[in-house]
Amino acid sequence: MREDKAQRRKRIINIIGKEWKSTFGNLNSALFITLLPLIITAQAVILIYLVMKFAGAEVLVKTLLGKGMESWLTTFPALGELPLIERFQVFFFAQFPFYLLLIPVMVAVSFATFSIVEEKQEGTLEPLLATPVRTWELLSGKALAGAIPSLLITWFCAGLFLAGIIGMGSGHLLKYILNAQWFISLFLLVPLFSLLAFILGVIASSRANDPKTAQNIAILVVLPILAIIGGQLIGFTVFTLARLFFLSIIAGVLNLFVLRAAVRLFQRESIVVRWR
């Protein structure tokens, strides 16, 4: 029925509108969402710049990073044509998309926990559930409200990072960086990980009564991301195209798994009776 569809869209837009008004109307959460990603990005650029400038290729080669660089080279032989120092640069730049995953994860977790714990604390969930809104509309509305700004800002930061590379005078290395891995990370892993973080945020919020506790639980998603970055840097593993796809599939399956749990938890009945 077309009217129903329009009604559904109207309700979801209503939810998104309210979420944005609350989130961006609050200085703390607005700053958190916009400033944190910029800091993360700037930090990455500056860090790489400092390491390159003060450590030098000869020093790096002798560290664990040298081993990481070597395994990287076997996967991307094209890098062999570059001088050692630039190989290291590309190697570091290539870690950024994973590092970037931290942004949507943190934004999604705070969106989910703030918005749901707030509803719990204020006692707005029961009146909300007495309206004709479907619980899945509520869940999707909140998810979209968090996902849209977080993806936009993440992609904006990716652009900023590329601009930073050019600013460092390494623009000619872009062709080694903007490979399939880069795009898969940005357009597949980033949405998948933010969804995962959001859902975990919802699940944690249903149990916790303040945003901090909920965030502490949900932020566990960060651990695998740090593991990926760490693993690559020390040459433990290289995320080739195939492995990236495999990682995406795992993230996708994990999403389905937690989504089912969240949907069950997000029934009228459970919210009214069990969320305390």
């Binding site: 309210k18 008004k21 609350s22 109307g25 609050n26 707030e118 204020e122 006692g123 707005t124 029961e126 009146p127 007495a130």
Partner: peptide, 14 residues
Amino acid sequence: IGLLTETPGFYERL
């Protein structure tokens, strides 16, 4: 139907 819940809450910042 309309429902006035026992402890009706609002978004206090709105």
